[in-house]
Nucleic acid binder design. Structure first.
Lengths: 205, 205
DNA sequence: AACACATTAGACCGATCGGTCAAGTCCACC
DNA sequence: GGTGGACTTGACCGATCGGTCTAATGTGTT
């Protein structure tokens, strides 16, 4: 994982958030109890409820934080130079590299720390559902913007429907997460990433 | 859903299994308790543990049953006539039609009744993990067989790597599940399905 | 009628769930 | 040095968790 064992005495709230991000990524929402999060964070129950009104509120914040990471990478790519289609490819490379890192460090691929929770919480009630919808919509919009940029710079064919293709790319990413989590094979994830790019028809450039 | 409200007096074991398939599909494994399954099935706890040694064993059987459905469709398609690439497309149409049915009947898309559980249970312990790995591997093999058939009948390009592309198709399916569950938009699912087919390069035929 | 056996019934178990609360510690500011 | 508010502490709450167990209730066989 990314940031366990921050032995440095950081703020209590941050320690809770960090522990929760790790645990929810690995085991999901329902399978992790507040007590377990507190244990991992080295914090007592009262402190938890001092900073977070409920477990569900913590979830919202975890999702927001997780999205900040992916969103940052996407926005960086949006402002980067070079053919936009290559920048899309680079995002997939980042995802693959992440899977490889998890596999190397922990022996296990945990998948997307957003998608895993999105899939578990489902379409039911859950206040977090709105958060998740917003995240996926932004994600789609980023991909669509990259595709449109590609159509401008000639790296993506004009025949490509940006919105549909953006959704398809996001679906491939989320599918890589599910397959990675279950089959735990980084090479296969890379193969999927390469195939996924074929959904973006190359331009004439 | 498919088979709730079988008021007909079917066997107790089947009623439990049916209720569990519905509930686990909608709400996942951890979020559903044995008591809830019993209530839905109209059965008392003792009966549950008479037929199933544990909740985890029930999960295995649910997964096996769920896979029987998808597997059946795939094997039918494998033996069907016509260009194999079209048969792959037909599988995606079936998935889309299923999403539309859920959305029409329940107002909500619950996604893949295998993938949802695969994503939740993750790479951790869980005896069911082996079950899930087997299912996904068979699924990949079916797709790969269709692609190879397509290369024989000319509907799929020889440049296509059947194993990699099969994994990519499965990833797209699972991504559709995650996105469908969260965004609940059947039209978008259909758009993704159409884009996903571009991962299978058409042949010369 | 008596027995065996499969199934039903639901009270019960310890553990854990998310969440509350009153008391205590700490530190900044007056 | 006293006061107030932020934070910590952990005991405690009722509900639910997965699972067990004993007793009752068929039901078919002899």
């Amino acid at each position: 994982m990314t940031d366990t064992a921050d032995l440095a005495e950081t703020g209590t709230r941050d320690r809770i958030l960090s522990a929760a991000r790790n645990l929810l990524h690995r085991e999901g929402y329902s399978a992790v109890g507040v007590a377990e999060i507190c244990r991992e964070a080295g914090v007592v129950k009262g402190s938890f409820y001092h900073f977070f009104p409920s477990k569900a509120d913590l979830l919202s914040e975890v999702l927001r934080r997780n999205w900040r990471g992916a969103n940052g990478a996407l926005e960086t790519l949006l402002e980067s130079p070079g053919p936009a289609r290559d920048r899309i490819a680079r995002f997939f490379q980042i995802v693959v590299a992440n899977a490889r890192r998890m596999h190397r460090e922990d022996g296990v691929i945990y998948g997307c720390n957003i998608g895993v929770l999105a899939s578990e919480l489902g379409p039911s009630l859950s206040e977090a559902e709105e958060e998740l919808r917003g995240i996926f919509n932004q994600w789609r919009r980023h991909f669509a913007a990259l595709i449109r940029a590609g159509q401008k710079d000639g790296s993506v064919s004009e025949s490509c429907d940006p919105d549909a293709t953006a959704a398809a790319l996001l679906a491939s990413i989320q599918g890589m997460s599910v397959l990675g989590r279950t089959l735990n094979d980084p090479d296969m994830i890379e193969a999927v990433a390469n195939s996924a790019l074929a959904q973006v028809p190359a331009g004439n450039h």
